[in-house]
Design a protein around this nucleic acid. Structure first.
Length: 952
DNA sequence: TACATACAC
DNA sequence: CATGGTGTATGTA
């Protein structure tokens, strides 16, 4: 079987995928159509009589000679007026005198036989109608090509390539045939325009088919088997025992036809899907020999095939492909109208960006190696060198030994076992990790300000340490790493550079127990990042990478190489600042701000739980209650309440939806009862709405069944208020118009709490205890130290599913926006938003509902930011792509009020959103790729966020 | 505000 | 048999 597996793909590929054959066929078909159409057209619309001495309407030149577009004679003799004097002087002379007449006559449609019989052989040097006829022929052939492309090429992604190749080949041929380069604008226009139309239409058709097939057959496995077959015949074979055989049999009828088509098009194994299934990490890293990357991919693929998860991934892959396709099309069309000065423009921007380069600091990123695994090894040294993973159903970490087999974090255990049958799996030991993490962080703090990014990762600003100790960054980081190893027994890797962006990438280079230092020079920075794969850069995930790949970019250096392309599609790259962000990335620039997250920085609290899919309403209600309870506990423990509650549902199909509800402007939700009631309310409503939508025949996520079959439920609170800053008792949730049954259900089976069940409650209690222990200095505003490292968040639940390293994941599908009726229950307590002069600095940035009740926390905490940011002259963008704050767009419709910005003292007029938007500008500058200008207001201080745009 | 997407870990 | 949980940011309507 193994033999078959390795040999088969090659064989098949050779047979099935032959681009040359495809392009030859397309080309042949194109000319076939031309040859059918042209004679007719020319005969009908043009003075065919004139052709009879030059090969007639079937002359091959009609198709091959670009000059016919100009209406020139086919033979090329006397091809233009100026060349009239040519070879056949007699005819030339005649044409000089008669040409015009003849053309006019032809135009009138009454070519007189007399003039012909006079021996006007090549009289017409210029027959406008022939040019048009030929052009029309070309257009028709191009449209016919759509059909061929649709059936032969099939994949939307490849349409562009083949279409362009076709034109290119024709170009070559026509140049050869005519012995001259096409200089006719008309020719270029016709050919270019029909190509664009052809590409767009063909792609659209293909996309439509993909959507159709993908969706209608998504649940019907036969198709899947079929579709996979040409790509992985080995799977089909090797699978005689598995469900694959079932599939291919049941789908046999269509299979054959489909198979033939597919074989023709010979789609590659669709690398994207393979890659997607294989997971995020770049295979090379961990796969140290026991298994080749190829093997690993195949095993994962095989193990995954046919599962719901797989189907979902496949669907996402398709949607992504469509997206890529779209941007390729945009690029193609923009290139047609490109002015040619794009590169200069980009270069100007680059220069402008480069001026803001900041090299004065020494920023390190410390990243523990296989953190969780290492913690376990510390506890039990006998684990060293063995293959094990941490986590139950899903691995959070794999030991380095296990990685050699291809096991990775974020991989389900059952697949890891296929890769490495002897892998051991250990239970998560959160307290172990927290303790270790604390030790690490404490050590790091000796070297400068730190900003933990997760349990096992932190940025350290080494600038002062280096200065004080008089050591080089290299020496500093060496000491630091040695220190950590001494004090914790854990090895860490580190990257050092002038900014966080580079350090992050650098830390990856000498991964286990290594370091990489980049000199503080512009040259070193740029040289370093140039060679990096795009995916290595923080902020570039699966989707962005694929998108950029589609444009031809693979490495950071390609950002420069293809800057023109990027420029042309800059408005279609996702968020508005991406273009500039990419440029700054190319320059090796980034934020150098190292600041610990504060308590008030928290924006949401949430709890999610996955379970075995069910459509039983009671069961779902029950789970939701548990989730609610857990969330309530988190909120209580951390003393936050929120105004908006969001229910999220992951259907059995892995499609997700979220439904949110905000009871009122100053209704603060915190208690279990309220959360539970609102949550159940949302769930119930969604069930009803969905059922109704289905009855109406609308498409909804999660399959066609009338009942929700879910695999995950979650609740999240947002619009938080820090209750520690609120003297008043949180307002009670006023009576909602909830049905009695809602209330009844509230407590229905709460008791199941103590039931052991899946151990969820057990681990929850454990973590609660843990959280208490971990709590430090509650009033320092810093007690959320454990909160601030990813994953640890509230620590109230089984949320220790943190993946410790090169994890990546889930690209989510895009879906139809299905708007449900949002029932706004207006609440008595809602106060009008009126002008408020917030007292001194306590103005709330985000929850300025009432001066009293607002949460000064966030702004109060962030109040320091402008100071902090002295270190980061906002020059460099932060680690993430940027944002466009459209503060002005919200202006109308909403109640307008006056407002004095507590920071810049400017008086502003606008809606609440606009105001908080403005204030927010002064703090936190996670990038601010403010594409537009940055009109630094006279009062605004330098560090205070440059994009305080509040014009209009 | 509501919802969806993308990303990190 | 079978693929997680928490949080942030941004676009769009």
């Amino acid at each position: 079987m193994t033999v078959a597996m390795t040999a088969a793909p090659q064989r098949f590929r050779v047979q099935g995928w032959d681009p040359v054959l495809i392009i030859v066929s397309l080309q042949a078909l194109h000319y076939l159509v031309l040859s059918l159409v042209l004679p007719a057209l020319v005969t009908i619309f043009s003075s065919s009589d004139l052709l009879q001495y030059e090969g007639g309407g079937t002359s091959i030149a009609l198709a091959m000679d670009w000059r016919v577009f100009t209406g020139s004679t086919v033979s090329g003799i006397a091809a233009s007026r100026k060349l009239g004097a040519g070879l056949v002087s007699l005819e030339s002379a005649r044409s000089a005198t008669r040409g015009w007449t003849a053309a006019a006559a032809a135009a009138a449609g009454e070519l007189d036989a007399a003039s012909l019989s006079h021996g006007v052989v090549r009289v017409l040097e210029y027959d406008a109608f022939r040019g048009w006829a030929v052009a029309l022929g070309w257009v028709i052939a191009s449209m016919a090509d759509i059909f061929f492309l649709y059936h032969i090429v099939r994949r939307p992604t490849h349409i562009l390539d083949f279409s362009l190749t076709l034109v290119f080949v024709h170009l070559i041929l026509t140049i050869y045939y005519s012995s001259s380069f096409p200089t006719s604008f008309f020719f270029w226009f016709v050919v270019g325009a029909s190509s664009v139309v052809q590409i767009v239409l063909a792609e659209q058709l293909c996309v439509k088919r993909e959507m159709r097939d993908g969706f209608s057959l998504g649940d019907v496995t036969p198709h899947l088997g079929v579709e996979m077959t040409p790509r992985f015949p080995d799977l089909e074979l090797g699978q005689a025992t598995g469900h694959g055989s079932k599939q291919s049999q049941s789908g046999d009828g269509t299979a054959q036809t489909c198979l033939r088509k597919r074989a023709w098009t010979g789609e590659e194994p669709k690398a994207s899907l393979l890659k997607r299934m294989a997971g995020p990490s770049d295979l090379k890293a961990g796969v140290g020999g026991k298994k080749t990357a190829d093997e690993v991919q195949r095993i994962i693929f095989e193990a995954s095939k046919g599962s719901k998860y797989f189907n979902d991934q496949q669907r996402r892959d398709k949607e992504l492909e469509i997206k890529v396709n779209r941007i390729k099309g945009i690029l193609a069309s923009k290139e047609l109208t490109a002015k040619g000065d794009e590169e200069q423009k980009v270069d100007a921007i680059l220069e402008e960006l480069a001026e803001k380069r900041e090299l004065s600091r020494v920023i390190a990123l410390i990243d523990a190696d296989a953190f969780y695994a290492a913690c376990h090894e510390l506890e039990d040294p006998s684990l060293k060198g063995t293959a094990f993973g941490v986590g139950g159903g899903m691995l959070t970490t794999a030991s380095y030994e296990a990685r050699k087999y291809g096991c990775r974090s974020a991989m389900p255990l059952f697949i890891a076992k296929k890769l490495c049958p002897h892998i051991k799996s250990l239970k998560m030991e959160p307290d172990l990790y927290v303790a270790a993490s604390k030790k690490i962080m404490v050590t790091l703090e000796k070297y400068g300000p730190i900003a933990p990014a997760s349990l096992d990762e932190a940025y350290v600003d080494l600038t002062d340490y280096c200065a004080n100790q008089g050591v080089t960054p290299t020496e500093a980081i060496s000491r630091l790493r040695a220190d950590v190893q001494e004090t914790t027994g854990l090895t860490v890797s580190a990257g050092v550079s002038p900014n966080k962006t580079l350090s992050k990438i650098a830390a990856d280079i000498n991964k286990p127990d290594g370091q990489f230092v980049i000199d503080s020079t512009a040259e070193a920075c740029q040289a370093f990042i140039k060679g990096a794969r795009l995916r290595k850069c923080y902020g570039i995930g699966r989707v962005t990478e694929t998108l950029l790949n589609g444009l031809g970019l693979e490495t950071v250096n390609d950002i420069y190489k293809y800057r023109k392309r990027l420029y042309l599609v800059r408005d279609h790259l996702g968020s508005s600042g991406v273009f500039r962000w990419l440029l700054s990335l190319y320059l090796g620039m980034g934020s150098n701000r190292v600041v610990r997250a504060k308590r008030g920085d928290r924006k949401t609290y949430g709890v999610e739980k996955t379970f075995t899919p069910t459509d039983n309403r009671d069961a779902l209600d029950d789970i939701l209650r548990k989730v609610a309870k857990s969330l309530a506990k988190d909120l209580a423990r951390s003393e936050f309440s929120g105004r908006t509650i969001t229910l999220s549902i992951k259907h059995d199909t892995y499609e997700r939806v979220t439904r949110a509800f905000t009871p009122g402007k100053n209704v603060w939700i915190r208690s279990y009862e309220d959360i539970c009631r609102l949550g159940l309310h949302l769930l119930r409503k969604e069930m009803d709405d969905r059922a109704a939508a289905i009855r109406r025949g609308e498409k909804v996520k999660g399959g066609k069944g009338p009942r929700i079959k879910a695999r995950l439920l979650g609740l999240r609170m947002s619009n938080l208020r820090d209750d520690r800053w609120v003297k008043a008792t949180p307002s009670k949730l006023p009576d909602m118009q909830l049905s009695d049954s809602d209330s009844d259900m509230l407590h229905e089976s709460d008791n199941s709490d103590e039931g052991e069940g899946d151990g969820w409650e057990a681990s929850k209690r454990q973590l609660e205890q843990l959280a208490k222990d971990a709590e430090v200095d509650p009033l320092a505003g810093d007690d959320d130290w454990d909160d601030s490292h990813g994953g640890a968040s509230g620590s109230g639940t089984g949320r220790w599913m943190v993946v410790d390293d090169d994890d990546e994941d889930d690209v989510v599908l895009s879906g139809k926006t299905r708007s449900l009726v949002s029932r706004t229950s207006s609440l008595p307590l809602a106060r009008p938003t009126t002008a408020r002069r917030t007292s001194c600095s306590a103005s709330s940035g985000s929850t300025s509902t009432s001066a009293k009740h607002s949460a000064p926390s966030s702004s109060a905490a962030r109040q320091h930011s402008p100071t902090d940011s002295r270190a980061s002259p906002t020059a460099s963008t932060d680690s993430r792509p940027a944002m466009k704050r459209k503060t002005e767009s919200t202006a109308s419709s909403k109640p307008v009020s006056e407002f004095t910005c507590p920071v810049c003292q400017k008086t502003l007029v606008g809606s609440e959103t606009a105001m908080s938007g403005h204030v927010a500008q002064h703090f936190e500058m996670p990038a601010k790729k403010s594409e537009k200008k940055a009109p630094t207001s006279s009062v605004t201080r330098k560090g205070a966020g440059k994009g305080a745009k509040k014009k209009r």
